[in-house]
Amino acid sequence: METATSVAISISCSPVSFTGHASYTAFGQPSKELRDPFEEHED
């Protein structure tokens, strides 16, 4: 494989993996540990 192809694959995988990790953090198991600051300060 050429160097340019390897670099292009690496760059294109980065946003996909970041999006997957962000979705897992927001909606997966770790989301139960997140706090809601608006809910803490309701009147």
Rank of each mutant, 00 (worst) to 15 (best):
E39A: 11
I11V: 06
C13D: 02
S12D: 01
T5V: 15
F27H: 03
S6M: 15
H41E: 14
A8E: 02
A26L: 04
S6D: 05
P30A: 07
K32Q: 13
E40H: 10
D43S: 12
D43W: 13
P37Y: 05
L34T: 06
H21R: 11
Q29P: 05
M1Y: 08
I11Q: 05
G20R: 05
S17T: 08
H21D: 10
T5D: 10
A26R: 00
H41D: 10
S23Q: 12
E40F: 09
P30Q: 04
E33K: 14
P15G: 03
E40C: 10
H21M: 10
A22N: 09
V16M: 01
A4D: 05
K32S: 07
A26G: 01
F18R: 02
C13F: 08
A26D: 00
Y24D: 03
E33Q: 12
P37C: 02
K32H: 06
A4P: 00
E2C: 08
H21F: 15
M1A: 10
T3P: 00
Q29K: 11
T5L: 13
T25M: 05
D36F: 13
S31G: 03
V7G: 00
Q29Y: 13
T3I: 07
A8D: 01
H41V: 13
C13G: 06
E2G: 14
S12T: 03
P30C: 05
E2F: 04
S23A: 11
H41W: 13
